[in-house]
Design a protein around this nucleic acid. Sequence first.
DNA 1: TTGGCTCTGTCAAATATTTTGCAGGAACTT
DNA 2: AAGTTCCTGCAAAATATTTGACAGAGCCAA
Lengths: 290, 290
Amino acid sequence: MTGDRKTISEMVRDKFDDLTRAERQLVDAILRNYPVSGLGSITALAQSADVSTPTVGRLVQKLGFHGYPAFQAALRAELEEQLSSPLVKHDRWSDGAPDTHILNRFADAAVDNLRQTLGQIDPADFDAACALLAGLERRIFAVGGRITHALADYFCTHMQVIRDRVIPLAANSNTWPHYLLSMRPGDVLVVFDIRRYENDILKLAEMAADNGTEIVLFTDQWGSPVAPLARHRFNCRIEAPSVWDSSAATVVILETLIAGVQQRNWDTTRDRMKAIEDLFDRTRLFRKFN
Amino acid sequence: MTGDRKTISEMVRDKFDDLTRAERQLVDAILRNYPVSGLGSITALAQSADVSTPTVGRLVQKLGFHGYPAFQAALRAELEEQLSSPLVKHDRWSDGAPDTHILNRFADAAVDNLRQTLGQIDPADFDAACALLAGLERRIFAVGGRITHALADYFCTHMQVIRDRVIPLAANSNTWPHYLLSMRPGDVLVVFDIRRYENDILKLAEMAADNGTEIVLFTDQWGSPVAPLARHRFNCRIEAPSVWDSSAATVVILETLIAGVQQRNWDTTRDRMKAIEDLFDRTRLFRKFN
DNA sequence: TTGGCTCTGTCAAATATTTTGCAGGAACTT
DNA sequence: AAGTTCCTGCAAAATATTTGACAGAGCCAA
């Protein structure tokens, strides 16, 4: 493929001239729907080629494999590379850093997390979540845990510009009952709960759900105990080459969600953004962008 | 996918809520490099997920298959269909979403940002920044702006577990002079400043630099006015298909930095992490992982 | 705490798969 | 045409895989 090693199909084609009748018949079957054909049992492959089982075994040995299982393993490895290459095929991320430098390892993990996270998201469900959060008649609450409250914070900072009635819950769970009182059926609670799942958050979600509040959950690949209560749920992979988890994929989904809500509320947002910019300018809090 | 029959990954996703800890762990491994992971022996799959062989057997029965071989057969059939249909499919992040869906556009932008960001980082400089932040004799301050204070917060939450003497600056700039007083030559100030650059942050950085405080800066591709003062600087691309900027690349670099510091302080960190876990367990703030 | 419950791993039996030994038979040479 | 060689399939042995039974561990409720 990339020159490091021959693919099975190439090996097979190269050897083709040296093969016997039954073996060519077999190779033909292998290539017929390559590489899936070779992934079943040796007998199944033999039958699909109308040759005997030992013929298959002998051919793979001729190709240099130690046995049929070894042949299958090679086939799987090849398939794996083929399936993942389009995206992971970056030349090293950071020039000058060895592949094993933590910058490169982390970047690999981040992209991998993102791909797998997106693979598990149903676009229709995602769109529905956007629509839910775009509804101006609802109030939006957001809460996070020890580590994830930064994400809830990030979310609220943006949402508060996009729309009215966005209420971040304080990190301190003592204050939560207060908010619970004001939640009404139809309101939305956005929950960030990533391992280790926090019991306080579960309790909060349970009570909110009892109230008729809709729950949107951001969690990890294993799923927080809040999941069964959630109307919309995003399982974001958090694996990282570190003792810590990575929130990168979560951030991407979160930002996409913000963008999606923003699109739906563009008329409102435009005015609000303009108003906010003016305010910031007036208070001279920010210097103009260069 | 094509609608006629559910794919294994969809089945797994649907059942996810009903699954137990070991089963989720297993599902995670299956999805890790789907579908190749499920094409080997049941034992190999079990080992890659760190569960026992029977657990795998039980899961596939739960999914409705008669046995592991039946599960594999379904997987092969699915793979065959996938491979024979348009190859571009693999390029899509989220199956079922048209390429122009915002999920896919955002993901593309995020990876692009990450690639370009990493391309601009000198690994040696990065390592030096890690070493700087790992020095226990220094105090670490962190500050962010209107939007980026969530990043500073995120950074501090982690660093406070890794090491002592990490001090997050409050979002309110009124309180900053207080912190300035306690900064000493050799201390480090981590600054998050992304457009629109905030004047207060610039002033803070200037005064800190005058004090002899080392500055580590996270900014965007254009560079905040703090840049000339910074000992280490990370320009993270923030482009997104939205009126908002994306912090995803910044988060990845930040997490990598945390991991790097963590490695250098592993002896200290291990004890601190253990102590913290114990504390959380005792206070029953968290429920055990399933 | 204690008792009941579910979950999960170990072990061993059952089953499937792969490999090997062997012999019939085709093709090629003499 | 007879002898030789190599190919091929059958069947049984060897090996690997899968499944079922059991018991310990952990969790939850009373």
